[in-house]
Computed example of a mutant assay.
Amino acid sequence: MDERRTAPRMRTLLSGKIMLGGGGVIDCMLRNRSATGARLQVPSIVGIPDHFTLLIEPAGERHPVRVAWRKQTEIGVAFVDGGE
């Protein structure tokens, strides 16, 4: 399989929140991350938009992201900026 990522991902187990534009929140778990993105485990991909803000707890990091791929209970996201 060809590796298409621009930065290597490291395994992690961090809690996070998908911050929706209308004020809603979806809990998620970061399964791995890199300087450019992350793999999120979610209860369902239903209702998750193509762009949102990812809050990584407990550090309080916020990253605007875009969805790169979706599976039934996982999504891959790319950070749109360098984050905080």
Rank of each mutant, 00 (worst) to 15 (best):
V65F: 05
D50Y: 03
A59V: 13
R4D: 06
I45P: 01
C28A: 12
G76Q: 12
G21C: 00
R66T: 09
T73R: 09
W69G: 09
P64F: 04
M1S: 14
G21W: 14
T53S: 11
T53Y: 06
G47C: 07
P64Q: 10
E57G: 08
M1N: 05
H51I: 15
G16R: 00
H63G: 09
E84P: 15
K71T: 12
W69N: 15
A78V: 12
G76R: 10
H51M: 14
G47L: 08
E57W: 02
R62D: 01
D27L: 06
T53I: 13
G47A: 10
N32T: 00
G16S: 02
G76F: 06
H63T: 06
R70H: 00
M10H: 11
M1V: 08
I18F: 05
L54C: 04
A7P: 00
G60H: 06
A59G: 04
F52Q: 02
K17C: 01
L54F: 12
A38S: 15
Q41A: 14
F52W: 06
V80T: 14
D81Q: 11
V65R: 03
A35Q: 15
T6I: 07
M29H: 03
P49N: 02
M19C: 10
L54R: 13
V46G: 01
R70C: 00
R4C: 15
G21M: 08
Q41E: 12
G76Y: 08
F52K: 10
V42E: 11
E74G: 01
K71P: 00
G37N: 04
E3M: 12
T36W: 01
P8Y: 06
K71S: 15
P49L: 05
P43R: 00
V65A: 07
P64C: 03
R70L: 00
L30R: 02
G24A: 05
F79K: 09
R9Q: 01
V67P: 00
P58K: 10
D2V: 06
V65M: 10
L55Y: 11
T12K: 05
R70I: 01
G83I: 13
T73M: 07
R62G: 01
Q72C: 01
Q72F: 06
A7Y: 14
